[in-house]
Computed example of a mutant assay.
Amino acid sequence: MGKGKSGDYFIDVLIGLHKGNGELSIDRETVKAAFQDAIGAGTGTSAGLLSWAMTELIKHPDIMKKVQDEVQGIVGERQCMTDEDYEKMDYVRAVLKETLRLHPTVPLTLRETTESFTLRGYEIPAGAFLWVNFWAIHRDPTNWDEPENFKPERFLTSSGEYQGYFPFGFGRRICPGMSFAYATTERVLANLVHKFEWQLPNGMKPKDMDVSEKVDTMTLERKVPLMLMAKKRFA
Protein backbone atom coordinates (compact mmCIF):
# COMPACT_ATOMS: atom_id res chain seq x y z
CA MET A 1 0.00 0.00 0.00
CA GLY A 2 1.06 3.58 -0.53
CA LYS A 3 2.31 5.55 2.42
CA GLY A 4 -0.28 8.30 2.15
CA LYS A 5 -0.94 10.72 4.98
CA SER A 6 -4.09 10.37 7.03
CA GLY A 7 -6.75 12.42 5.26
CA ASP A 8 -5.36 11.97 1.73
CA TYR A 9 -7.99 11.79 -0.99
CA PHE A 10 -8.43 8.52 -2.87
CA ILE A 11 -6.95 10.01 -6.04
CA ASP A 12 -3.93 11.21 -4.03
CA VAL A 13 -3.27 7.64 -2.89
CA LEU A 14 -3.58 6.30 -6.44
CA ILE A 15 -1.21 8.93 -7.83
CA GLY A 16 1.21 8.18 -4.99
CA LEU A 17 1.20 4.52 -5.98
CA HIS A 18 1.77 5.49 -9.59
CA LYS A 19 4.81 7.51 -8.53
CA GLY A 20 6.16 4.54 -6.57
CA ASN A 21 5.41 5.79 -3.04
CA GLY A 22 5.42 2.39 -1.35
CA GLU A 23 5.95 -1.26 -2.11
CA LEU A 24 3.30 -1.32 -4.86
CA SER A 25 3.50 0.59 -8.14
CA ILE A 26 0.71 0.96 -10.70
CA ASP A 27 0.55 2.48 -14.18
CA ARG A 28 -1.57 5.40 -15.38
CA GLU A 29 -4.22 3.15 -16.94
CA THR A 30 -4.74 1.39 -13.62
CA VAL A 31 -5.08 4.74 -11.84
CA LYS A 32 -7.72 5.81 -14.35
CA ALA A 33 -9.61 2.50 -14.18
CA ALA A 34 -9.64 2.41 -10.36
CA PHE A 35 -10.86 5.99 -10.12
CA GLN A 36 -13.58 5.48 -12.73
CA ASP A 37 -14.75 2.33 -10.96
CA ALA A 38 -14.96 4.17 -7.64
CA ILE A 39 -16.93 7.07 -9.14
CA GLY A 40 -19.24 4.83 -11.14
CA ALA A 41 -19.93 2.39 -8.32
CA GLY A 42 -20.40 5.14 -5.76
CA THR A 43 -22.81 7.42 -7.63
CA GLY A 44 -25.22 5.40 -9.75
CA THR A 45 -25.80 2.86 -7.01
CA SER A 46 -26.50 5.53 -4.38
CA ALA A 47 -28.85 7.35 -6.74
CA GLY A 48 -30.69 4.09 -7.38
CA LEU A 49 -31.04 3.39 -3.67
CA LEU A 50 -32.47 6.86 -3.03
CA SER A 51 -34.91 6.46 -5.92
CA TRP A 52 -36.23 3.21 -4.45
CA ALA A 53 -36.33 4.69 -0.92
CA MET A 54 -38.44 7.63 -2.10
CA THR A 55 -40.65 5.23 -4.04
CA GLU A 56 -41.38 3.23 -0.90
CA LEU A 57 -41.99 6.37 1.17
CA ILE A 58 -44.48 7.67 -1.41
CA LYS A 59 -46.21 4.28 -1.39
CA HIS A 60 -46.33 4.33 2.42
CA PRO A 61 -47.27 7.84 3.65
CA ASP A 62 -47.45 6.61 7.24
CA ILE A 63 -43.77 5.64 7.07
CA MET A 64 -42.93 8.95 5.38
CA LYS A 65 -44.58 10.72 8.34
CA LYS A 66 -42.49 8.70 10.81
CA VAL A 67 -39.29 9.65 8.99
CA GLN A 68 -40.25 13.33 8.91
CA ASP A 69 -41.18 13.29 12.58
CA GLU A 70 -37.87 11.69 13.55
CA VAL A 71 -35.79 14.17 11.57
CA GLN A 72 -37.79 17.19 12.72
CA GLY A 73 -37.60 16.02 16.33
CA ILE A 74 -33.80 16.01 16.04
CA VAL A 75 -33.22 19.01 13.79
CA GLY A 76 -36.24 21.23 14.30
CA GLU A 77 -36.43 23.85 11.57
CA ARG A 78 -32.68 24.28 11.21
CA GLN A 79 -31.55 24.33 7.59
CA CYS A 80 -28.23 22.59 8.23
CA MET A 81 -27.78 19.18 9.84
CA THR A 82 -24.69 18.05 11.71
CA ASP A 83 -22.93 14.68 11.94
CA GLU A 84 -24.31 14.36 15.46
CA ASP A 85 -27.84 14.79 14.08
CA TYR A 86 -27.41 12.02 11.53
CA GLU A 87 -26.09 9.60 14.14
CA LYS A 88 -29.42 9.83 15.99
CA MET A 89 -31.58 9.06 12.94
CA ASP A 90 -32.22 5.37 13.55
CA TYR A 91 -35.47 5.26 11.60
CA VAL A 92 -33.93 6.92 8.52
CA ARG A 93 -31.21 4.25 8.63
CA ALA A 94 -33.84 1.51 9.02
CA VAL A 95 -35.73 2.80 5.97
CA LEU A 96 -32.58 2.57 3.85
CA LYS A 97 -31.78 -0.93 5.11
CA GLU A 98 -35.31 -2.12 4.37
CA THR A 99 -35.10 -0.52 0.92
CA LEU A 100 -31.89 -2.45 0.26
CA ARG A 101 -33.57 -5.64 1.42
CA LEU A 102 -36.45 -5.33 -1.05
CA HIS A 103 -34.43 -3.67 -3.81
CA PRO A 104 -30.78 -4.73 -3.48
CA THR A 105 -28.62 -2.50 -5.64
CA VAL A 106 -26.77 -5.52 -7.02
CA PRO A 107 -29.34 -8.37 -7.02
CA LEU A 108 -26.94 -11.03 -8.32
CA THR A 109 -23.28 -11.71 -7.75
CA LEU A 110 -20.87 -14.27 -9.15
CA ARG A 111 -18.63 -16.49 -7.03
CA GLU A 112 -16.10 -19.21 -7.91
CA THR A 113 -15.92 -22.29 -5.69
CA THR A 114 -12.51 -23.10 -4.19
CA GLU A 115 -13.37 -26.72 -3.38
CA SER A 116 -16.03 -29.29 -4.30
CA PHE A 117 -19.11 -29.75 -2.11
CA THR A 118 -22.70 -31.03 -2.15
CA LEU A 119 -25.62 -28.62 -2.02
CA ARG A 120 -29.15 -30.02 -1.73
CA GLY A 121 -28.13 -33.18 -3.53
CA TYR A 122 -26.16 -31.43 -6.28
CA GLU A 123 -22.43 -32.07 -6.62
CA ILE A 124 -20.66 -28.73 -7.11
CA PRO A 125 -17.06 -29.11 -8.36
CA ALA A 126 -14.16 -26.86 -7.41
CA GLY A 127 -13.68 -24.00 -9.85
CA ALA A 128 -17.39 -23.73 -10.69
CA PHE A 129 -18.97 -20.31 -11.14
CA LEU A 130 -22.16 -19.79 -9.12
CA TRP A 131 -24.68 -16.97 -9.20
CA VAL A 132 -25.86 -15.85 -5.76
CA ASN A 133 -29.36 -14.35 -5.89
CA PHE A 134 -29.54 -11.70 -3.14
CA TRP A 135 -32.96 -10.56 -4.38
CA ALA A 136 -34.44 -13.98 -3.65
CA ILE A 137 -32.56 -14.43 -0.35
CA HIS A 138 -33.91 -11.09 0.90
CA ARG A 139 -37.48 -12.24 0.19
CA ASP A 140 -37.15 -15.75 1.62
CA PRO A 141 -40.05 -16.30 4.08
CA THR A 142 -37.90 -18.69 6.11
CA ASN A 143 -35.66 -15.75 7.00
CA TRP A 144 -38.08 -12.82 7.01
CA ASP A 145 -41.47 -12.08 8.51
CA GLU A 146 -43.83 -10.76 5.80
CA PRO A 147 -40.96 -10.54 3.30
CA GLU A 148 -42.95 -8.74 0.59
CA ASN A 149 -43.99 -5.91 2.92
CA PHE A 150 -41.98 -2.74 3.50
CA LYS A 151 -41.33 -2.77 7.28
CA PRO A 152 -38.36 -0.61 8.39
CA GLU A 153 -39.15 -1.44 12.01
CA ARG A 154 -37.59 -4.87 11.57
CA PHE A 155 -34.17 -3.15 11.48
CA LEU A 156 -34.72 -1.18 14.68
CA THR A 157 -34.22 -4.33 16.74
CA SER A 158 -31.96 -6.37 14.46
CA SER A 159 -29.24 -5.50 11.96
CA GLY A 160 -30.47 -8.37 9.76
CA GLU A 161 -26.97 -9.55 8.89
CA TYR A 162 -27.64 -12.93 10.52
CA GLN A 163 -30.92 -13.64 8.78
CA GLY A 164 -29.97 -13.51 5.14
CA TYR A 165 -29.20 -9.82 4.52
CA PHE A 166 -26.41 -9.19 2.01
CA PRO A 167 -27.03 -5.89 0.15
CA PHE A 168 -23.28 -5.27 -0.10
CA GLY A 169 -22.18 -8.86 -0.62
CA PHE A 170 -20.32 -10.89 1.97
CA GLY A 171 -16.95 -12.31 2.95
CA ARG A 172 -13.66 -10.95 1.67
CA ARG A 173 -15.35 -9.49 -1.41
CA ILE A 174 -17.90 -7.41 0.50
CA CYS A 175 -18.31 -3.94 -1.01
CA PRO A 176 -15.62 -1.62 0.41
CA GLY A 177 -17.94 1.35 -0.08
CA MET A 178 -20.61 0.11 2.35
CA SER A 179 -19.96 2.72 5.06
CA PHE A 180 -19.68 5.49 2.46
CA ALA A 181 -22.98 4.46 0.85
CA TYR A 182 -24.87 4.48 4.16
CA ALA A 183 -23.35 7.82 5.21
CA THR A 184 -24.15 9.64 1.97
CA THR A 185 -27.64 8.25 1.39
CA GLU A 186 -28.69 8.84 5.02
CA ARG A 187 -27.76 12.49 4.67
CA VAL A 188 -29.50 13.00 1.35
CA LEU A 189 -32.69 11.18 2.37
CA ALA A 190 -32.91 13.03 5.69
CA ASN A 191 -32.66 16.39 3.92
CA LEU A 192 -35.14 15.45 1.19
CA VAL A 193 -37.90 14.43 3.59
CA HIS A 194 -37.19 17.22 6.08
CA LYS A 195 -37.08 20.18 3.72
CA PHE A 196 -39.81 19.18 1.24
CA GLU A 197 -43.25 17.66 0.97
CA TRP A 198 -43.42 15.21 -1.92
CA GLN A 199 -46.29 14.16 -4.13
CA LEU A 200 -46.88 12.46 -7.45
CA PRO A 201 -47.65 14.69 -10.46
CA ASN A 202 -50.98 15.16 -12.22
CA GLY A 203 -53.06 13.77 -9.39
CA MET A 204 -51.50 10.32 -9.67
CA LYS A 205 -52.05 8.00 -6.71
CA PRO A 206 -49.38 5.72 -5.22
CA LYS A 207 -51.28 2.65 -6.40
CA ASP A 208 -50.95 3.94 -9.98
CA MET A 209 -47.14 3.99 -9.94
CA ASP A 210 -45.30 1.56 -12.19
CA VAL A 211 -42.69 0.05 -9.85
CA SER A 212 -41.39 -2.54 -12.30
CA GLU A 213 -37.74 -3.43 -11.88
CA LYS A 214 -34.98 -3.81 -14.45
CA VAL A 215 -31.33 -4.82 -14.21
CA ASP A 216 -29.01 -2.39 -15.97
CA THR A 217 -25.31 -3.39 -15.97
CA MET A 218 -25.78 -5.54 -12.87
CA THR A 219 -27.69 -2.89 -10.84
CA LEU A 220 -31.39 -3.04 -9.97
CA GLU A 221 -33.21 0.07 -11.13
CA ARG A 222 -36.73 1.30 -11.70
CA LYS A 223 -37.97 0.50 -15.20
CA VAL A 224 -39.89 3.79 -15.20
CA PRO A 225 -38.01 6.72 -13.60
CA LEU A 226 -39.55 8.22 -10.48
CA MET A 227 -41.14 11.63 -11.03
CA LEU A 228 -42.18 13.68 -7.99
CA MET A 229 -43.22 17.25 -7.21
CA ALA A 230 -41.56 19.00 -4.27
CA LYS A 231 -42.96 21.75 -2.03
CA LYS A 232 -40.90 23.46 0.66
CA ARG A 233 -41.98 22.49 4.17
CA PHE A 234 -40.61 25.57 5.91
CA ALA A 235 -40.61 29.21 4.92
Rank of each mutant, 00 (worst) to 15 (best):
R154G: 01
F155A: 12
F155T: 09
L156F: 03
L156A: 11
L156I: 12
T157M: 14
T157Q: 12
S158Y: 11
S158M: 06
G160D: 12
G160M: 05
E161H: 02
E161V: 09
Q163A: 01
Q163D: 07
G164T: 06
G164Y: 09
G164W: 03
Y165E: 04
Y165Q: 11
Y165A: 11
F166C: 01
F166H: 07
P167T: 06
P167A: 12
P167F: 07
P167S: 08
P167D: 11
F168R: 02
F168Y: 13
F168Q: 04
G169T: 11
G169L: 10
G169M: 06
F170K: 01
F170W: 03
F170I: 06
G171Q: 10
G171D: 00
R172M: 06
R172N: 07
R172A: 10
R173F: 05
R173K: 07
R173T: 12
I174F: 07
C175D: 13
P176K: 15
G177P: 03
G177S: 15
G177M: 01
M178F: 09
S179E: 15
S179N: 15
F180G: 06
F180M: 14
F180T: 03
F180Q: 06
A181K: 00
A181C: 11
A181T: 00
A181W: 00
Y182V: 01
A183E: 03
A183T: 04
A183Y: 01
A183N: 09
T184R: 05
T185V: 13
R187A: 07
R187E: 04
R187L: 11
V188C: 09
V188D: 02
V188H: 05
V188S: 05
V188Y: 01
L189V: 14
A190Q: 03
N191C: 14
L192C: 10
V193Y: 02
V193K: 02
V193T: 04
H194M: 00
H194P: 02
K195T: 14
K195R: 11
F196K: 00
F196P: 00
E197T: 05
W198Q: 00
W198T: 00
